[in-house]
């Protein structure tokens, strides 16, 4: 069953995760947020979860966002799921790596509440309203 209103949030930092969840909930209470704390956990969750998009951090323990991104985008089963990298890193190497590995977008984590809210608003309105995504199969 397609879970069209679900976001998989891959974020190890509790505070960052809380801030993002709060912003998403305040803008679109209908969207369900499922959280994984590292890349490995996210990949494990995808066997049962079909999110509309994945929002993923880079620096995480055990398996970081770069590794998880490369893994998912090279797996036929998951490569159609849009992945938005949302990270503190503005390192050019990270940005290049992510786009080379077919990340759908690369965003910086906002430094204040207003920026976070604007970014999330943009992200949601694009991926949940403007963009046509390939509806995930069962």
């Amino acid at each position: 069953m397609a879970q069209d209103n679900t976001i998989l949030l891959v974020e190890d930092d509790d505070i960052d995760a809380m801030m993002l969840e709060r912003s998403i909930n305040s803008l679109r209470p209908d969207i369900k947020i499922v959280r994984a704390v590292n890349g490995r956990e996210a990949i494990d969750m995808l066997s049962t979860l079909k999110p509309r998009i994945i929002v993923m951090d880079i620096r995480m323990p055990l398996m970081d966002g770069r590794e998880a991104l490369a893994h998912l985008k090279h797996d036929e089963q998951y490569q159609q799921i849009p992945i938005v990298m949302m990270t503190t890193s503005d390192n050019p190497d990270d940005i290049e790596f992510c786009y080379q590995n077919h990340a759908n977008a690369y965003m910086s984590k906002g430094i204040d509440n207003k920026t976070i809210r604007t970014d999330i608003d943009n992200l949601l309105s694009f991926w949940f309203e403007t963009a046509k995504v390939n509806p995930p199969e069962l």
Partner: peptide
């Protein structure tokens, strides 16, 4: 240094967010 300075951004961002709160 890259990793540490990057990691330093996280708590800094948190400080800013909580100050706003």
């Amino acid at each position: 240094a890259g990793i540490v300075s990057h990691d330093l951004k996280s708590p800094l961002r948190h400080i800013n967010l909580f100050n706003e709160q």
